[in-house]
């Protein structure tokens, strides 16, 4: 279908963009890569009066890697992450997860800021942000604020963003080189949204036991979630076959995935347990 009518602006500064959004009385929307918004417009699931294109905003497209971790500008595209070989070492979980986002042509335009703001429950980037204790920098009429991913995602396609706010950056804390990690998702076709996915990492203490376990899941709830029961089952334990089984069981017990056209809830629950067990096995190999 054809999108509904709207006005279009492509401001050259962030301040101008925020002003345009604020002037829209809640009916103005940012367009970045357009790879989620354009389908929403085509389906008439969104009908804004004004689109504010981030196209001309400078400085939002950089990937910075430093002692404090990785900083991704909101306009960093999937292909930029894929092409930045530094990330394979500086943030392997990010690099691996992003391989699973969409297809070649979509990856040339889709951005991390758009994905975070769109907040699809199955999307990989929100899962990375949540699992890795990410923080978003957000600019609006009220100034600049920094928000943790744990409070940013509030529901399906819902975030704490105000209508006049723009995500400018995602910060992911530094990644120790010895960290154990895994990413696993299942989609029927390559590049499709996952029916379920798991992101995990932990460090090993001097006794070779897991500490600081972070286990996140996508596609099984209204928004990406941390599996705290599974994390508790992993923390302090050696990652043996028994431990892996216990962690997967704890995860399955703690979730209540929805049924939809793609899969019944019981299937998603089983899938998540399997993906988590496989991910943990991979993390020790």
């Amino acid at each position: 279908m054809k999108p509904p009518s709207f006005a279009y602006a492509s401001p050259s500064t962030l301040a101008e963009a925020v002003n345009l959004l604020a002037s829209g009385n809640g009916n103005a929307k940012v367009i970045s890569g357009g790879q989620s918004l354009m389908p929403m417009l085509a389906f008439r699931l969104a009908a804004p009066d004004l689109l504010v294109d981030l196209k001309h905003l400078k400085d939002l497209g950089t990937i910075t890697i430093g002692d404090d971790g990785v900083r991704l500008g909101a306009k960093v595209r999937w292909c930029d992450i894929e092409n930045d070989r530094r990330l394979v070492r500086s943030h392997p979980l990010l690099a691996e997860a992003i391989k699973h986002v969409a297809h070649y042509q979509v990856r040339n335009r889709g951005t991390i800021g758009g994905s975070l703001a769109h907040a699809d429950p199955s999307a990989e980037m929100p899962g990375v942000a949540l699992t890795c204790d990410g923080e978003m920098t957000i600019v609006g009429s009220g100034g600049t604020r920094v928000e943790k991913a744990s409070s940013f995602f509030t529901g399906p396609l819902q975030t704490s963003l105000e209508p006049d706010e723009i995500v400018t950056e995602l910060h992911l804390p530094a990644w120790p080189a010895t960290r154990r990690w895994a990413f696993r998702e299942f989609a029927r076709r390559k590049g499709d949204f996952a029916m379920a996915g798991v992101l995990l990492f932990y460090d090993l203490d001097h006794r070779n036991c897991a500490v600081d376990a972070h286990i996140g899941a996508i596609g099984i709830a209204d928004c990406p979630i941390r599996l705290s029961a599974a994390e508790a089952a992993l923390n302090g334990n050696a990652v043996t076959e028994d431990c892996i089984a216990a962690v997967a069981a704890a995860a399955k017990e703690s979730i209540d995935p929805p049924s939809d056209i793609h899969a019944p809830g019981a299937y998603r629950r089983a899938l998540l347990g399997t993906l988590l067990a496989r991910g943990l096995q991979h993390s020790i190999s």
């Binding site: 492509s10 354009m38 389908p39 689109l51 196209k55 070649y104 040339n108």
Partner: peptide, 19 residues
């Protein structure tokens, strides 16, 4: 509808002409 924009393959149904 794939076309090349500045040498990159993109879907021309997911881009506005004004972009």
């Amino acid at each position: 509808c794939t076309v090349l924009v500045n040498g990159e393959a993109v879907r021309s149904c997911l881009m506005l002409a004004v972009q």
